[in-house]
């Protein structure tokens, strides 16, 4: 077991009252497994992974629950210890590669810096490793790319450089937050391909956050669907896409226009919009938008329950 998260809760104090960004999230991750986390804006998918990385430094935030990495508790670990893990054993890729790279140093220097910080090797040795890494993420001319500055690269190439940096210390856990959202589809296809190959080669476990159901279905082994700070459904890729149970998962899948076959005259849309975390509805958070809600949904919030394929819904529990 690489990662085991239990009952994670993250809340922020704001002027308008406390916001529960994450409300009781639990999941496990095995070696070389890809977990897809899907959800819309405000569903808590990014915050939960920032918590795992120990990157929530906001003094108004409270983090509760347990995050165990290879059996070691990360919640409450001193920043010094966390820094030793981050970038070394746990690596992260963000949506916008430009914010992960400093504009004033070359790509080669930046990747080498990370290797030297964690491995204590000589500069020349680190540079050798950088060239290898850039070749691995399919830079056409790795030696030349090392002396490039981020602004001289295209978006896709920058994201490849960030991936090379993330892989530089052979991380056991790779967290990718919407790494392809800012990229074009043809570039995205290349990056997804790369993530798949790297998982096979480095045996890294990957948490892949995205709002795109298509991307998840192409990449993930297991999937977790989030809504308003909670996990509403989890299961293997096959379970989730061939037998979606939660009304939200079903509706979300239904509202994606098909790429082949007959076009529907109208798309089955979900009414309303995702709720504000400041004013969550009574009972089930999806209730007000749900086509199958009934009395129990108005009072209690349904739990996820046990089981590999589970949905947090009273209707599903009843069936």
């Amino acid at each position: 077991m690489i990662l085991s998260v239990r009952d994670l809760r993250v809340s922020f104090r704001t002027h308008d009252g406390p916001v529960r960004a994450i409300d009781g999230v639990s999941f496990d991750l095995e070696e070389s497994e890809i977990l897809g986390v899907v959800g819309e804006s405000g569903s808590g998918k990014t915050v939960s992974l920032l918590a795992v990385m120990g990157l929530i430094t906001d003094p108004n935030a409270t983090i509760q629950g347990s995050i165990r990495y290879k059996g070691r508790e990360l919640v409450g670990l001193p920043p010094r210890e966390l820094r030793r893990l981050r970038g070394n054993e746990i690596a992260m890729i963000f949506q916008d590669p430009m914010t992960a790279l400093t504009p004033v140093y070359t790509i080669g220097w930046q990747i080498a810096e990370q290797i030297r910080a964690h491995r204590g090797v000589s500069k020349a040795k680190a540079m050798e490793r950088v060239e290898e890494l850039l070749a691995e993420v399919n830079f056409p001319n790795p030696h030349e790319a090392m002396s490039r500055y981020p602004h001289q690269l295209s978006g896709g190439m920058r994201q490849r450089a960030v991936i090379a940096m993330a892989l530089s210390c052979d991380p056991a856990l790779l967290v990718a937050d919407e790494p392809t959202t800012a990229l074009d589809v043809t570039v995205q296809a290349g990056i997804l391909d790369l993530v798949r190959k790297l998982r096979a080669k480095h045996k890294s476990a990957v948490v892949f956050i995205t709002h795109d159901m298509g991307v998840v279905s192409e990449l993930a082994d297991r999937v977790m669907v989030m809504y308003a700070g909670r996990v509403v459904e989890r299961g293997t890729r096959m379970e989730l896409f061939s037998d979606p149970r939660h009304p939200y998962t079903r509706a979300l899948l239904g509202s994606i226009p098909p790429l082949t076959g007959q076009k529907p005259r109208r798309l089955p849309a979900i009414p309303g919009s995702p709720p504000s975390l400041l004013r969550l509805p009574q009972g089930c958070a999806f209730g007000p938008r749900c086509p199958v809600r009934y009395e129990p949904c108005e009072s209690g919030r349904p739990g996820l329950g046990g089981g590999a394929h589970a949905a947090a819904c009273f209707r599903v529990a009843q069936a």
């Binding site: 056409p140 589809v185 043809t186 296809a189 795109d212 298509g214």
Partner: peptide, 23 residues
């Protein structure tokens, strides 16, 4: 068109994808 990720319930990698090289 082949690069668009679509929701599939078949095992991954069954759809033929053309990956372009270069930028």
């Amino acid at each position: 068109i082949s690069a668009v990720p679509v929701v599939e319930t078949t095992p991954t990698g069954t759809r033929k994808r053309i990956i372009l090289t270069g930028d």
